[in-house]
Design a protein around this nucleic acid. Structure first.
Length: 398
DNA sequence: AAGCAATCCAACCGCCTGATT
DNA sequence: GAATCAGGCGGTTGGATTGCT
């Protein structure tokens, strides 16, 4: 394996592009299309490597690129998708038409990341940095914040697998209509089930589905507070209704593993690949228990439709969900709000619930603060999931 | 006005993955 | 199955610009 970088060839130019080079590249692509990038430079009369040409085209010369400042909606979208997807810039870019992954990445690194850090929020986990330092009365909040994050990570992996199921169902189907429904993205969610004692996951299926059915998912939490002494225990049931044309499987085992550890482990040969489980076409339902307060998230991986999006004057996508304007994300986007999360925890008696990152939690004595916390986090994650709901069919998100 | 620091962003680099031979 | 190719992705760099003292 291994090969020398294409730009190592002697005589190939590097560095900033000149207007003349831009013009050559633009003229060639407009006339012939890019075709093979490797062959393009010679044909276009450019002393550049194909990779450099491709980068210049995709990040700068492409006619459908919007330049200039990011709007508030775009910032919201980036932050929320980053919370769900991490540094998967190309996936995020699919939700910001006319923006390149490189531009989004730069904007994140130079603006948004710093803004979150300034707010005391870890830009990687999107959780308060001082979780570990929270006082004992905030333990419940800390745990729940972690659980919410786990949920999001789990949802990310699940959606990835779901997208793959839909895609592969599509491939089996000759009905071109379903191209509108499914995603062409490659999905590689490999879920490594690692040791954990608090979460159980079991896979079961009980029906088959017609291909005409849109994939639908529901995630429901209902409080099961049988134990008056401990925190409320949540029984969460997540149903997958994926397009399928084959039979069913039931898999047990691999219990007691933690969804937190499922994400981003796809390269390991020892992983249990959830997407592969989906390959044969299954409907899965998964249940686990956690220590969350009552919470209901329902989501539908619906076909990409114009109605599923709002488009503003600039033509970029926003989320059709009023909760987008509330809660956690808005706090982040509001530069005027910079109180620390730990402060809001200490002052929860007077916090009034604004902002969404306030303290509370099942373990605390302040119920109103706790419900605000949960409500705002629910809004936060709901808005992310709603954003996912309106994913374009060709989104490589998952 | 000069010097320095901070910021921005286009471009490069290395790695990965899927397709092809 | 291994080697290679082609393209894509994310991390990083470094020159240009802007802001501050």
């Amino acid at each position: 394996m291994g090969r020398s970088p294409c730009c190592d060839k002697v005589g190939l130019k590097k560095g900033p592009w000149t207007p003349e080079e831009d013009q050559k590249l633009l003229a060639y692509i407009e006339e012939h299309g890019h075709g093979s990038w490797r062959a393009l430079p010679a044909k276009a009369g450019l002393q550049r490597c194909g990779k450099s040409c491709r980068l210049r085209w995709t990040n700068y010369l492409r006619p459908d690129i919007k330049r200039g400042k990011f709007s508030l909606q775009e910032e919201q979208t980036i932050i929320q998708l980053h919370a769900l997807l991490g540094n998967r810039w190309s996936a995020i870019a699919t939700h910001l038409p006319k923006r390149t992954d490189n531009e989004i990445k730069n904007y994140w690194n130079t603006h948004l990341k710093k803004r979150l850090a300034k707010m005391g929020i870890d830009p990687v986990t999107h959780k308060p940095k001082n979780d570990a330092l929270l006082s004992p009365t905030c333990d419940g909040q800390s745990k729940n914040a972690a659980n919410l994050s786990h949920m999001a990570q789990w949802e990310s992996a699940r959606l990835e697998a779901e997208a793959r199921l839909v895609r592969e169902s599509k491939l089996r189907s000759h009905n071109s209509f379903h191209h509108l429904i499914s995603t062409s993205a490659s999905a590689s969610a490999s879920l490594q089930l690692l040791n954990n004692t608090t979460t159980t996951a079991g896979w079961s299926t009980n029906s088959t589905h017609d291909l005409d059915q849109s994939p639908t998912s529901t995630l429901t939490f209902s409080e099961n507070n049988n134990n008056n002494n401990g925190p409320p225990v949540i029984s969460a049931t997540i149903g997958f209704i994926g397009s399928s044309n084959t039979g069913m499987i039931k898999e047990e085992g691999d219990h007691h593993h933690h969804p937190q550890d499922w994400k981003g482990l796809g390269s390991s040969s020892t992983t249990t690949n959830l997407a592969d489980q989906y390959k044969d076409g299954i409907e899965n339902s998964l249940s686990f228990t956690s220590t969350l307060h009552d919470m209901t998230i329902s989501m539908e991986v619906a076909p990409w439709t114009p109605e599923s999006l709002r488009t503003n004057n600039n033509g970029h996508v926003s989320v059709g969900n009023s909760s987008m304007d509330e809660g956690f994300t808005n706090l982040l986007l509001n530069d005027s709000v910079d109180r620390s999360l730990s402060d809001s925890c200490r002052d929860s008696d007077t916090s009034g619930g604004g902002g969404g990152s306030g303290c509370g939690g099942s373990g605390g004595s302040d119920d109103s603060g706790g419900s605000d916390y949960y409500q705002d986090n629910k809004n936060y994650w709901n808005s992310i999931l709603n954003l996912v709901n309106s994913s374009p069919p060709n989104s490589p998100m998952f």
